[in-house]
Nucleic acid binder design. Structure first.
Lengths: 138, 138
DNA sequence: CAGTATCCAGCTAGATACTG
DNA sequence: CAGTATCTAGCTGGATACTG
């Protein structure tokens, strides 16, 4: 029992450490599919080329074709909460709302572009290994 | 109906695009909590300092205190499949198995260290924004 | 236009117990 | 030591329908 308790305790400590670890928090953030897509969209449309620009809610919804209003709002809110995007509501007749990357968001965009670049140079190799193994069983 | 069909179609196309997109695949990979932890562990123990080294199964299990054998094996297998780690079984009396980063794995390690570095410089700012908003309601 | 509210289904991490 | 097998519970994404 004591040995089991020790294990349980070190596990709890480790989990506590992970809960605080900045890297894990970052991973939690960007592992959300829509986070990266929204950031890159605001960073210049879906193809990641061009300059950052503000976009309206419906514009984002159209660009990220598969997103439900729920996820779009939820993700935008969390990004706003984290100071990564800023929301601007203009009181026109139907209200106009735009979202834009903050400086912090732009910094994250650079990081994501780094990921993208690694992915483009190395993921084919990863997939090649995977397919190789699959072909094995054929 | 036709408008709805159009929307459904573009959504399907977008999802298909995402399924193929190298960046999304990379994100899928590293968003797995244990993937990054194992890679950094093999990259030098849990604190990410020091040099990459091979580790035994039980050594990994001890380092990643909270991991179940199931997840550890599952993650190691997938990393092996993707050519990110190599598995070596030495036929000693109880068999000895070690895992080590491949070149591709080492490359991924560099990327993860980049993430870690961004996290350490910027996540406190993100969290500060978040806490600010929380404090609001207090 | 820019959301909000609700409900449901699928995946998957984790616990646990057993094995060559 | 180095795993494999099974079961379950919880979270989360998606669909849908409605609103200021």
């Amino acid at each position: 029992m004591t040995a089991a308790d020790k294990r349980a305790e070190s596990k709890a400590k480790y989990n506590a450490f992970l809960a605080v670890c900045p890297s894990q928090k970052l991973l939690d953030r960007i592992s959300d599919k829509w986070v990266t897509l929204i950031v890159t969209a605001l960073g210049s449309g879906p193809d990641c080329s061009g300059d950052p620009r503000a976009m309206r809610y419906s514009e984002l919804a159209r660009t990220l074709a598969g997103v439900s209003p729920k996820m779009l709002t939820q993700t935008l809110r969390s990004l706003e909460l984290d100071g990564l995007v800023s929301r601007t509501a203009t009181p026109t007749v139907p209200v106009t709302v735009t979202y834009e990357l903050t400086d912090l968001g732009l910094s994250l965009l650079q990081l994501i572009r780094g990921l993208k670049s690694w992915a483009e140079t190395h993921m084919d190799e990863v997939l090649a290994n995977r397919d190789l193994a699959v072909g094995h069983s054929a």
